[in-house]
Amino acid sequence: MEPVFAVLTGLFFAFAVYLMLSKFIIRVLLGVAILGNAVNLLIFINGRLLREVPPVLAAGLDVPAGPVANPLPQALILTAIVISFSFFAFLLVLSWRAYEALGTDNTDRMRLAEPETSPLPPEGY
């Protein structure tokens, strides 16, 4: 099944990148949300796929009875999901505040920190 999901992951990346190349912050944000899923899928599939057997030991067993899904990528992804959600929320609130303060959602016009015509730095000592 891995090649099928490789194609799907590629699709996730392509759409995430396309959205993030936009000039409008909301689109960039949507792209970031999809990118998080794309990366999680990437890690998940890198760890190989196994259907329907979670890495949980039945009661009384010390080691899994048969093959189980790879637990390592799951542990990595679990924290990654929560963290990417935190950052998604942060970016969301940040762009909302930026929109309120600067009156635009076009990143090209958000030039408070890097003004279009900044003077040359001083050449003295």
Partner: peptide
């Protein structure tokens, strides 16, 4: 710790 679930 023993079944699906956890703090997150």
């Amino acid at each position: 710790h023993n079944e699906p679930g956890g703090g997150f």
